[in-house]
Each structure stands twice: as structure tokens, then as C-alpha cells.
């Protein structure tokens, strides 16, 4: 299949999910010419360009080491890119100073493959941590010190992921699927416009993985949250996205609407 045109103008792709009200081409994330090397001999990203429109679900696929995770981390400057421009909600991320960068990050829920919950503290405290970008300080450090309004919001987020009954359970005593749902609740606590998920189901069994992807689907469909996720699972990428990007050896090699692509089309970009 020929490589699809990368769209920076924001023309809308056919959506699998019901078209949200406010999706008229507004780009939540636009990345252009992104490059990143680790040392002299390990170039991970080579001029990567892509965009994610508001309320769109985009899957980024590629084999191990292709640059998926680095691309996501560079987009939020968790890893500093060597070159390239990044726009988040139409604001320049590349030149943002630390304080502004924190405010921009606060609008993006980042869900990691290994959940990255703080162990030894409760699920509720982990969810409350999601608010630190908006309001830091000791009252956001633990559910012990948090004001009632914050605890209520955190409980609501846990309810949304179906884990209200695990609020006071230690994060390191939850199952993999439960941990990932708490991580999603932490992201929801940010009231995010965009959720970025780095292989969110890679460490989960198929049932838990399906539950987590269904949860993302529900958030995208019902709440209009934009989703950018990476995956190794071609079927999942096609089922849960409006658009699929494929990255190979640090370059975007495919950008197409998922309802026009087949598993075979995507399979070519592995290996």
C-alpha cells in the first residue's frame, strides 16, 4: 500500500466513533520534523511528522525500537528532542519554559505501559496525584491531606473506571488490569483534553487488555477525549482508532484512516 499523505492541515479522517461536536479540524497535537538520537550511533527518530485532531483516536504502530515511545515522550518533552516543532493545543511546546510546559502537560493524561503508579500508597492517593499539575503542594500529596473536593473528584474518577471499591487498597497490591485502570483514573483526574497511552495493554492479559481498550473507547466516544496510543496489536489498533500511523526505523511510513486499512497493510510495517 502506498504511504498516505501526512495531513498537517487537519482535514478530517473518516471516524469509526460517532463524530464529536467539536472536531472541526482543531489539532490537539502537531509534531513536525521531530528527530532524536541517543548518542552518536543511535538515532531513534528521523524527522517524524504527524498530527492528532481534537476528539480523534489515533494508533501509532511499529516494531520494538521503531521509535513509538520516544515519539510520545518527545511530544511532551519528557525526553528533549534534538530537532522539530511540537504544538500542543496550538501552543508551542518546543520553546515553552518549565512553568508553561507544566501547564500544558497538565491537560494531557499520559498512560504508561507499566502503569507507573506510586507503590505503597493507596489507589485514591495515586489518582489525587493526577491533580498535581493544576494544584501542587502538600494537599495534593496524599488523600490524608487532600481537601474534600479533591477526594470527591478522585473517587468519581475511580468510579468511572469501576474501581471505587479499591480506593484504599495499596497500588502495589492491585492486579495488572486494575493498576492500569487506576493509571487511567489518574489521567482522568487531570480532566484531560488528550490522553497519550504508551502500549497501555502490552503488560496485561488479553481479558484485562480488552477491558482497558474498551475503557479508552468509551472515553473517546462518550466524553470526546482525544486519544493517541501505541500498540503492537494490529487488530486492536484498527478496532480502537480512527486513524493509524506506522513508524519504522524512526520514520512515519503510513498514515491512513483505519477503516481503509487491513491487518495485512499494517503487518508490512513490522520486522
Amino acid at each position: 500500500m502506498a504511504q498516505a499523505q501526512i495531513d498537517f492541515a487537519g482535514a478530517s479522517a473518516p471516524a469509526k466513533f460517532p463524530t464529536p461536536v467539536n472536531s472541526a479540524g482543531f489539532r490537539d497535537l502537531a509534531v513536525q520534523g521531530l528527530s532524536k538520537s541517543f548518542g552518536a550511533d543511535r538515532t531513534v527518530l528521523r524527522g517524524v511528522s504527524f498530527s492528532v485532531r481534537a476528539q480523534e483516536a489515533v494508533a501509532l504502530i511499529g516494531s520494538n525500537g521503531a521509535g513509538k515511545s520516544t515519539a510520545l515522550r518527545c511530544a511532551l518533552r519528557l525526553v528533549e528532542p534534538d530537532e522539530g516543532d511540537i504544538q500542543l493545543f496550538n501552543e508551542d511546546v518546543t520553546s515553552a519554559r518549565q512553568h508553561r510546559l507544566r501547564k500544558l502537560r497538565a491537560n494531557v493524561g499520559f498512560v504508561f505501559q507499566k502503569h507507573n503508579l506510586v507503590p505503597r500508597v493507596s489507589a485514591l492517593t495515586n489518582v489525587i496525584h493526577g491533580n498535581l499539575g493544576r494544584s501542587g503542594g502538600i494537599r495534593g500529596w496524599s488523600q490524608l491531606f487532600a481537601p474534600v473536593s479533591l477526594r470527591e473528584r478522585a473517587m468519581h474518577c475511580l468510579e468511572r473506571v469501576g474501581l471505587a471499591d479499591k480506593a484504599l487498597q495499596r497500588a502495589d497490591q492491585l492486579s495488572g488490569g486494575q493498576s492500569q485502570r487506576v493509571a487511567i483514573a489518574r489521567a482522568l483526574m487531570q480532566d484531560p483534553k488528550l490522553i497519550v497511552a504508551d502500549e497501555p495493554v502490552a503488560s496485561l492479559d488479553p481479558v484485562a487488555g480488552h477491558e482497558v481498550m474498551e475503557l479508552f473507547h468509551k472515553l473517546t466516544r462518550d466524553e470526546g477525549i482525544t486519544l493517541l496510543f501505541t500498540s503492537h496489536n494490529i487488530e486492536q489498533a484498527l478496532s480502537y482508532s480512527d486513524r493509524v500511523l506506522a513508524i519504522k526505523q524512526g520514520e512515519i511510513v503510513l498514515d491512513g484512516a483505519s477503516n481503509t486499512l487491513s491487518s495485512a497493510d499494517l503487518g508490512k510495517h513490522y520486522g
Binding site: L104, F112, K114, L117, V118, P119, G130, L132, G137
Partner: peptide
């Protein structure tokens, strides 16, 4: 990992 998650959520260094 947890530090990176909180940094990604916009937390300050002290909070992290």
C-alpha cells in the same frame, strides 16, 4: 516510572 508519570501530569519537581 512513577516520577515520570507525575512529571508528565505537570507536577513540579518538589511534588514529584
Amino acid at each position: 516510572g512513577p516520577s515520570e508519570a507525575l512529571t508528565a501530569a505537570g507536577a513540579s519537581k518538589l511534588d514529584t
